[in-house]
Amino acid sequence: MAEETHLTVNIVTPDGLVYNHHATMVIVRSIDGDLGIMANHEPIVTPLQIGEVHVRRIDNPGHEDLIAVNGGFMEMSDNVASIVADSAERERDIDLSRAEAARQRAQQHLQEAQAQHDTDEAQRAQVALQRAINRIHVKTGK
């Protein structure tokens, strides 16, 4: 029996399917660091951090799709990498001006929470800031 040369990458959020393509490799940011998955990888389940997902599609070998993923987990089994995320946005769908505005709001909220010594609000603002920065990085490639 021949080994498969590609895997399927699915990204699902509470709003539905965000991404579904065949790939040679997917790279995710797990809580233990970056993880690259190729076809025929052993089954694995891993929680994800806020970060970029890189997908090397089989139909365009020199190109990587970038998706901003905000938490969740990935399961790899039978050459299907399924990512279930709180939210996810493809690079082409990110509105940079909205992401920049969200970053500014989060920074302001974080400063206010820190000034009031409100650790819960500061933590929420920090997560919002990470999400906005992640979206900006995916959109700009920086």
Rank of each mutant, 00 (worst) to 15 (best):
A23S: 10
A23T: 12
T24Q: 09
T24N: 05
M25T: 02
V26H: 03
I27D: 01
I27H: 01
I27R: 14
V28C: 12
V28L: 13
S30E: 01
S30F: 02
I31P: 07
D34V: 02
D34F: 14
L35F: 11
L35D: 06
G36E: 04
G36D: 03
A39M: 06
H41Q: 07
H41R: 14
P43N: 02
I44W: 10
T46L: 12
P47L: 07
L48E: 02
Q49W: 09
G51C: 05
H54E: 06
H54V: 00
H54Q: 13
H54W: 10
V55G: 01
V55D: 00
V55W: 07
R56M: 14
I58Q: 13
D59E: 12
P61K: 04
P61E: 00
H63A: 10
E64C: 05
D65C: 04
D65I: 08
L66H: 12
V69M: 09
G71P: 04
G71Y: 04
G72V: 05
G72A: 02
G72S: 05
F73A: 01
M74L: 15
M74N: 13
E75I: 01
E75P: 00
E75C: 00
M76Q: 13
N79L: 06
V80D: 04
A81N: 00
S82R: 15
S82M: 10
S82I: 10
I83A: 00
D86N: 15
D86Y: 14
D86L: 10
S87M: 02
S87P: 05
A88F: 05
A88T: 03
A88M: 08
E89I: 14
R90N: 12
R90P: 06
R92M: 08
R92C: 02
R92L: 07
D93L: 06
D93C: 07
I94E: 00
I94D: 02
L96F: 08
S97H: 12
R98Q: 14
A99T: 06
A99F: 04
A101M: 09
A102T: 03
Q107A: 14
H109R: 15
L110P: 03
Q111E: 15
E112M: 08
Q114I: 10
A115V: 04
H117N: 15
D120T: 09
D120W: 11
A122Q: 11
A125V: 06
